[in-house]
Simulated scan of single mutants.
Amino acid sequence: MYVAEVELLLTEELRSFSAADIRIGRIGVQAMQVDHISVDDGNDIYLIKIMYDLLAEDSTPPLRSATLGIAFHTPDVRIRDAWPRLVTMPCPPERLAVTERLEFVRHTSDAHGLLVDHVPVPKLTPEVRVSSPGGVDIRWQHTATVRPGAHNGWLIVMAPTGCHEIEVRVTGDHTPERTLGMHARGKPDTMTIRLPHRRSESDGLRYRIGFTVDIVDYSSRPSDQQRIAQQRLLALLQRFTQHTGVAVEPGYFQATGDGFNSFLPDIDAVTAMRHLVCTMPHLLGEDNLQHADQIKLRMAIDVGPVEPSELGFAGPTVIRFCRMANSEPAREAMGEPDTTMAIVVSDTLYDDIVRQHGDLSELPFTRHDVVVKTYQATAYLLSHKS
């Protein structure tokens, strides 16, 4: 059995994402999205969106049935409700709500007593049904016409307050057409999901290396490709943490739609810079080898004060590296057809870290004057090519 530890990148109040990158046969779990929505009698309540794929393969017949199973093995963790429950005919996009009784309901304008009033659900195709919607496990069963591609499932999960992580077991099986009812079942995966913690009064201003990542030409992609690009970027970050051992702490990650902002923990700055300017582009190249849609990234790195806040971060550092990523030198570099990643480094990090260490100083950085809105500074650009 393969055991994967999946870091949930969470802030205290806001949505967080987890790149799972699990494949069991022709069922793939790509990512999870988690919201902490309430506290109830010694328990924290979470809304979890599971993003999974039913995979089509050219050399095999289409699927006649497929089942994704999710089970929680941590004591006192319970599933209160799941969606979709039963889909017997095509359903248009709709809006769900979560009630104080911890149940999913279709949203109405006169609804009262809601914990969450806007859970957007895309159109659903038959036939999908759920089994064991309460307790510790859940199974979504696709039968009749199994549509290959992306699917979503939602859970309302209750965990004891103070629980920092939960163990999740993922199972899957499927039946291809023309197989006389035989089931193909893959080996289950077990992963540990880290849950958010509440910031204490001792948390405050920190001095850290931070960076932003943007997907180039994100808005030109159709919505389904945008979703896949987001999943790939999150999976890239997950592989980065696994490869380097540099975990992103709760409260120091902010999703931006076409990318993310993040601050590293208190680690060796030289090692951090080596990983950001060398390991990240290498992992991007490995990802692009597996996909026709070639993702290109702009990244900017700076160091300075930061404090987690209600909508992300407070402090000047996040503003500076976002300005650098949107600068003309970074955009011009991505205009080169063979450039896959443009990395902009602040003059402080370049002078204090890059210039002082031989392997980093030998990289082909170029000096630029960056002017974006009221921001003006010197920065250094490194372009990675395919």
Rank of each mutant, 00 (worst) to 15 (best):
E165V: 12
E165D: 15
E165H: 14
E165L: 10
I166L: 13
E167D: 11
E167Q: 13
E167C: 14
V168C: 10
V168S: 03
R169M: 12
R169K: 10
R169A: 11
R169N: 11
R169D: 09
R169E: 15
R169F: 06
V170I: 15
V170R: 12
T171E: 15
T171Y: 06
T171V: 05
G172P: 08
G172C: 01
G172F: 03
G172H: 09
G172N: 05
G172M: 04
D173P: 01
D173I: 00
D173V: 01
D173E: 14
H174M: 01
H174C: 09
T175A: 06
T175I: 13
T175E: 09
T175D: 04
T175V: 14
P176V: 02
P176C: 03
P176D: 04
E177H: 07
E177L: 12
E177V: 07
E177S: 08
R178F: 10
R178D: 07
R178V: 01
R178H: 10
R178Y: 09
T179Q: 02
T179V: 07
T179P: 02
T179W: 04
T179E: 05
L180E: 12
L180R: 06
G181S: 02
G181H: 04
M182R: 03
M182G: 01
M182C: 01
M182H: 08
H183G: 00
H183C: 07
H183M: 13
H183K: 15
A184L: 11
A184Y: 11
A184C: 12
R185G: 03
R185E: 09
R185L: 02
R185V: 13
R185T: 15
G186H: 04
G186W: 05
K187C: 09
K187R: 13
K187G: 14
K187D: 10
P188V: 02
P188Y: 04
P188S: 07
P188F: 02
P188W: 06
D189I: 09
D189L: 12
D189K: 09
D189C: 07
T190G: 04
T190Q: 06
T190M: 07
T190H: 12
M191T: 14
M191L: 15
T192H: 09
T192A: 12
T192E: 11
I193L: 15
I193T: 01
I193R: 10
R194S: 15
R194W: 10
R194C: 11
